[in-house]
Computed example of a mutant assay.
Amino acid sequence: MSRKVLHICLSNGWGGLEMYPSRIIPELARQGWQAHGLALAGSRVAESFREAGVTPLTVPSKGRALLAARRLLGYLKAHDIGVIHCHKSSDLRLGALLATLRPSLRLFFTDHMGVTRPKKDPYHRWAYGRVTRLLSISEATRQRNLAAFPLPAERIRRLYLGIDPEPYAPRLDDRERASLRRGLGVPEGAVAIGLPGRLTPGKGQEVWIEALARLGEAAPAWHGVLIGGLRAEEGSDEAYVARLRTRLAELGLASRVTLAGFRRDLPRLFEALDIVCVPSRNEAFGLTVIEAMAAGKAVIGSDSGAIPELLDAGTGRLAAPEDADAWAAAMAELAGDAALRARLGKAARQRVLADFTLAAHVAGLIEEYSATRSG
């Protein structure tokens, strides 16, 4: 078979799901596969394909994509593409239609979000019945997929996401790190406690703020750094951001927590932090967790969703996502013990190198793309 794949992502949003195709395209190329793309015209996804070196096909809407099915089949034939990979459940309408019209196509779907309700009605039985393999990004997600989708277990595989760990390796000298910390408002000698991610309900910023308030003077001098866009066009919920600002003021924390806004230099920001918190309530995977681990940081994550698959007592700490007291206790433990932070951070980076690299993820993906049909 040819080593070519068409990634379909018909989304106007911009999050981990939408970033995924362009993240893996360079590694696919390194491992001998050529990627093509289909996206909505004018979308950030289409732009990201171009940034990854792929000129995507574009359609004005999802409906128009369905009407273009015959043209897409012609494109697939002309470019000898035998594999289609969808990333949004709504894109499966198109993927399943193409696979129905040309049964030799191999259709893949990655559940990036974690299904929340059963999908076993006639439409979903038809659409998922055309799927060659459904890829779950964690074991927690896979268990939900097994219960929700009309597929036999052998057609649902867990394939952990991965990152390139090299950009996260520390590279700042002491002077550069001190300058970056000053720019983030971190006082000299303070323990910097950061929370990166979109500022939206479910990501846990509220419990983090409450935990900082409980931390008070029980720990060494500390400073909070909240990293994430503050405006809707940056993916955040502006009403929620306003609520966070109000709560910080009510708790007297406005001067002790910096709202850093959207940043493109997250690997370097990790170098400025001493502790990274990821209090999301129900992550399907936890990409931010492994990014912080790759940076050698001491990480506190929620003991829900997939995060416990990434962190254990030897690589970080876990706390219940709604329990501010538990978060404060974990922060206090790590804030008061620099040697423990260093030990956890070193072990965390080794875990990423062993289990969560982008190269390993793409190798597993190619194994699926290349396998003979089964299930």
Score class of each variant (00 low, 15 high):
Leu365Cys: 12
Lys346Glu: 11
Leu184Glu: 08
Arg256Asp: 12
Ala39Pro: 02
Leu38His: 00
Gly345Met: 09
Ala260Trp: 01
Asp274Ala: 02
Gly375Asn: 10
Ala339His: 08
Glu233Leu: 01
Ser104Lys: 13
Ile275Thr: 03
Gly228Leu: 07
Glu217Phe: 01
Ile84Thr: 04
Trp33Tyr: 13
Gly286Trp: 04
Val257Leu: 06
Gly189Trp: 09
Arg171Thr: 10
Arg182Tyr: 06
Tyr75Thr: 00
Gly74Arg: 02
Leu38Cys: 07
Ser138Met: 06
Gly375Ile: 12
Arg341Pro: 00
Gly296Gln: 09
Ile290Met: 05
Asp111Glu: 15
Leu72Phe: 05
Glu154Tyr: 10
Glu238Ala: 02
Leu344Cys: 11
Val276Trp: 09
Pro170Glu: 11
Pro220Leu: 06
Leu353Trp: 14
Ser43Arg: 01
Ala320Arg: 15
Gly252Phe: 02
Ser22Trp: 12
Ile25Gly: 02
Val115Arg: 07
Glu154Lys: 11
Asp323Asn: 14
Arg23Tyr: 14
Gly189Ser: 12
Gln31Pro: 06
Lys346Pro: 03
Tyr160Glu: 05
His7Ala: 00
Glu210Cys: 08
Asp303Leu: 06
Gly314Tyr: 05
Thr55Leu: 11
Arg102Asp: 04
Val352Met: 04
Ser48His: 12
Ala328Asp: 08
Gly216Arg: 04
Pro21Met: 12
Gly301Phe: 03
Ser43Thr: 00
Thr58Asn: 04
Leu251Cys: 09
Gly204Pro: 01
Val257Tyr: 07
Ser304Val: 09
Ser255Met: 03
Pro21Ser: 06
Ala46Val: 01
Leu134Ala: 12
Leu353Lys: 04
Phe109Val: 03
Glu51Pro: 01
Ala342Gln: 14
Leu287Ser: 06
Ser90Phe: 03
Glu238Phe: 12
Arg349Gly: 09
Met293Thr: 09
Ala338His: 11
Tyr168Asn: 11
Glu271Cys: 11
Ser236Phe: 14
Pro165Arg: 10
Ala211Phe: 10
Asn282Phe: 06
Pro56Glu: 02
Ala272Glu: 04
Glu333Tyr: 05
Asp303Ser: 15
Ala335Thr: 07
Trp327His: 12
Met293Phe: 13
Ala213Cys: 07
His112Lys: 05
Phe108Cys: 09
Leu287Pro: 09
Ile24Lys: 03
Thr141Tyr: 00
Ala329His: 08
Glu27Asp: 13
Glu291Val: 05
Gly228Ser: 14
Phe49Ile: 01
Leu105Pro: 11
Asn282Thr: 05
Ala329Ile: 02
Glu188Lys: 10
Gly13Cys: 05
Ala178Leu: 08
Ile137Met: 04
Lys4Ser: 15
Ala324Pro: 04
Ala41His: 03
Gly286Cys: 05
Arg349Leu: 05
Ala96Ser: 15
Ala39Trp: 00
Val131Cys: 13
Leu230Lys: 06
Leu199Ala: 01
